[in-house]
């Protein structure tokens, strides 16, 4: 569903991503770990076609995103690190608007179902988004993704700034989405959540995917040790 083939990108001659190859199948959650500047966000932006690759291909549902951006984007939902909604619209209105942009028109009951599915409390549905916490905004973002019925979900530092409870709820939500067959690629610094949530973990350093593994293969302490080991490499 989410595939990269020799994906490379440079900025002003400086390589930001080198020959990345990865594949995320439906129902899988792939966590990209790495320090700042490791190439995680560049990877996400290449899949979103906000950047053009120098080499290689990024594919969503078999579509080369650079060649068929509209088709590819139709299958993608994206939640940025610090998701912002329209502050003067309620969560419900934000969801209705973002859904309508995709050409989908839902009844209120359907929108309520998406918000409930995403874990937003019913009393928050009609509250203006300016009063939402980051966790509530994340949940609305997930509801937007659900309403889009996207096959691929791309997340950039989704748990950054969330308190442990919200972070835990978010991880549970991702697992539920994976059960629907959604392929998820997330860039994160959160080793604990990556271990808890992801079906695959990739460690990136200086634009390279230096290690790819399954969390089942390694414990929490092992992942942290591995990560620190990779980061300390010259």
């Amino acid at each position: 569903m989410i595939e990269a083939y020799n994906l490379s990108k440079s900025f002003n001659g400086q390589p930001a991503l080198k020959q990345l190859n990865l594949a995320v199948a439906p129902g899988e959650i792939y966590a990209l770990l790495g320090a700042n500047g490791a190439g995680k966000t560049t990877t996400i932006h290449l899949f979103l076609n906000f950047l053009k690759p120098d080499e290689g291909e990024a594919r969503i549902d078999g579509q080369n995103v650079a060649a068929n951006p509209q088709r590819a984007r139709a299958q993608i939902a994206y939640i940025p690190e610090n998701i912002q909604l329209y502050p003067n619209l309620s969560g419900m209105e934000n969801l209705a608007y973002f859904s309508a942009l995709t050409g989908k028109k839902y009844e209120r009951a359907e929108l309520e179902m998406f918000l409930t599915e995403a874990g937003l409390e019913p009393e928050a549905f009609d509250k203006r988004a300016r009063y939402y916490s980051k966790g509530m905004r994340q949940k609305t973002g997930i509801a937007i993704a659900l309403a889009k019925q996207a096959k691929a979900l791309l997340l950039d530092e989704p748990t950054s700034g969330l308190d442990p409870q919200a972070s835990n709820e978010f991880a549970s939500l991702l697992k539920r989405l994976s059960e629907y067959g959604i392929a998820t690629l997330m860039a994160t610094h959160d080793l604990f959540r990556a271990k808890e949530t992801a079906t695959h973990i990739g460690i990136m350093r200086s634009g390279e995917l230096v290690q790819s593994l399954r969390p089942k293969e390694i414990g929490q302490a092992g992942l942290e040790a591995l990560y620190l080991q990779q980061m300390s490499q010259p």
């Binding site: 906000f50 984007r73 139709a74 939640i79 610090n82 329209y86 973002f98």
Partner: peptide, 16 residues
């Protein structure tokens, strides 16, 4: 401002 907040990316991805 929407670019600064990342909303622009979401809007474009939604098809606008």
């Amino acid at each position: 401002r929407e670019r600064e907040q990342g909303v622009l990316k979401m809007l474009v991805l939604q098809g606008a």
